[in-house]
Design a binder for these strands. Structure first.
Length: 495
RNA sequence: GGCCCGGUGGUCAAGCGGCUAAGACACCGCCCUUUCACGGCGGUAACACGGGUUCGAUUCCCGUCCGGGUCACCA
């Protein structure tokens, strides 16, 4: 075997710093668990000034989705997770798309066979099925582990299809370390001689992963805890090649409830879905970071972090071992806070499409509505239902005028409106301040609590029990003509 | 079923032999207030269970129970 080629491959591997990778399958959308994995992976690289790379694992042709890679790129960009090497920008250890690395794996499998750590298995699918029985459980029995050389030659000559399996020691133990779970030791006897190269010549995921991670110089592997059981086999592979084992960071899944992972099947939202539901990317990222990780030390009490802050304090020691249930309520809390923290201009810019959709009345100045709604939204979607009355006064019941605490009823509400009407009609200037002065002045003048006047006015203007802003704000925004019209209508309706 | 991992309030979680067991969301109450929100204050609520080890266990060990993962020529 020509070792020169292998040496050249080794020579390409960057040495020294931390290198992490996010290696998604292009299935067309980014679920929350994936996003969290990407985030942690990115944070580990940035925390240590290392490199973060992107590798597309597209070996499963059946699951390929049109432009799925594009969705991955755009999601990562929107989240602020920039990569240093990847399919689109290249890098020293490319290609970064697995199907373009196809011919690599066979060579390494060959090398492994020569070292005695792998062997050809000619057992057909039929034999394996019989072996596994009805429950489908149980590993490979090692039937082809020690086939005589002559028999192997014979089968090869006859063109019998084969796979290449990893030769795992029958005795002894293997220990691997995980940054989250610590040291885990298993008996080698419980490990299966897993397939490395399939009969079609393509590598299995487990094999391709080890090869690619090594050849790309990956130092920290972040992945789901479902790979915990196969990690000993990975270690054995690294050992067989004489390669350095990366640091493992296994993360428990993000769950939708006690029993199920988040999944598209169950209708759980993906990152894109959350944005479409009116969430801010920053809020999602902040929340997701805390789902399965918590800061220690001086930051232990904090919950709100920018990406940059996270990249300065993230430590794998804070990653939780147990699964976390995704809580939309808490995400809303984060989002509400992010919305409130926006500058008025930024909020208006973001809210504008939602306001325009809800309010077609050109007389209404949307920039005046935005600040009213800013402290009252969990997501952008909360805007429309709050402001629809600016568009047109809804039909409402006179019972809305009755409020125990305000001490209002239909009778005194009508009186209040009748007293308000001439005051507003005579108002020379229709500004917030003048309205405020006029309305509260009237209450004072009549010796009434503010609410006795303001509650009926707010009700007449909106026809709703709950509105963003009170009587003064609504008058101001609706304008003189429309405000007076609605108050007159209120009087008529109460009469 | 074998093997691996996990188990603090409804949820996220701090804790890493000694604490009245943090904090946040949600929920409830009060205050503020021109409604609702925001804000402020307060409240309900947890160490799965049983054995050890120890002067002392949420914390260490064992067992039970419960949950998750894995046992593919899928990733």
């Amino acid at each position: 075997m020509d070792m020169k080629w292998f040496d050249e491959m080794e020579a390409r591997i960057p040495k020294g710093g931390v290198r992490t990778r996010f290696a998604p399958s292009p299935t067309g959308y980014m679920h929350v668990g994936n996003l969290r994995t990407a985030l942690y992976t990115w944070l580990i690289a940035r925390r240590s000034g290392g490199a973060f790379l992107l590798r597309i694992e597209d070996t499963d042709q059946e699951r390929l989705v049109e432009d799925a890679a594009g969705i991955i790129y755009s999601t990562l960009r929107k989240c602020g997770l920039d990569w240093d090497e990847g399919p689109d920008i290249g890098g020293p250890v490319g290609p970064y798309i697995q199907t373009q690395r196809r011919d690599l794996y066979g060579k390494y499998a060959q090398l492994l066979m020569e070292k005695g750590h792998a062997y050809r298995c000619f057992c057909g699918k039929a034999r394996l099925e019989a072996l596994h029985g009805e429950d489908g459980l149980g590993g490979y029995d090692g039937h082809c582990r020690d086939l005589p050389q002559a028999e192997i030659e014979e089968k090869l000559a006859a063109g019998v299809p084969y796979v290449i399996r990893q030769r795992i020691p029958r005795s002894g133990q293997t220990t691997f370390s995980d940054a989250v779970f610590g040291d885990i030791t298993v008996d080698n006897a419980t490990l299966d001689d897993q397939v490395l190269i399939k009969s079609d010549g393509l590598p299995t995921y487990n094999f391709a992963n080890v090869i690619d991670d090594h050849l790309m110089g990956i130092t920290h592997v972040v992945r789901g805890s479902e790979y915990l059981s196969s990690s000993p086999k990975y270690n054995l592979l690294y050992q067989a090649f004489g390669w350095q084992v990366p640091t493992y960071i296994h993360c428990s899944p993000v769950m939708r409830d006690q029993h199920n992972k988040m999944s598209k099947r169950h209708g759980d939202p993906s990152y894109e879905d959350l944005l479409a539901k009116g969430f801010l990317s920053e809020a999602v990222v902040n929340y997701v970071a805390l789902l399965g990780w918590s800061p220690r030390g001086e930051y232990a009490e904090r919950e709100f972090f920018t990406l940059r802050e996270l990249s300065e304090i993230f430590d794998t020691g804070g990653i939780s071992k147990s699964p976390a249930i995704f809580d939309l309520e808490k995400l809303k809390y984060f989002n509400a806070n992010y919305l409130r923290a926006l500058s008025p201009a930024d909020f208006f810019a973001g809210a504008r499409p939602y306001l325009e959709q809800a309010i077609q009345n050109p007389a209404v100045d949307l920039s005046l509505v935005a600040p009213l709604v800013q402290p009252r939204c969990d997501t952008w979607m909360d805007i429309a239902p709050q402001v629809d009355f600016f568009n047109a006064l809804p039909a409402y019941s006179n019972e809305l005028y009755c409020h125990k605490k305000m001490k209002t009823n239909e009778e005194n509400s009508r009186q209040a409106l009748e007293q308000v009407l001439p005051v507003l009609e005579a108002l020379p200037q229709w500004s917030y301040d003048s309205l405020h002065e006029a309305l509260l002045g009237l209450a004072q003048q009549l010796g009434l609590k503010n609410g006795r006047i303001l509650w009926p006015v707010r009700t007449a203007l909106s026809g709703k029990a709950v509105t963003p802003g009170g009587a003064v704000e609504l008058c101001h925004i609706l304008g003189r003509e429309e405000s007076l019209r609605r108050i007159r209508q209120g009087i008529a309706q109460l009469g």
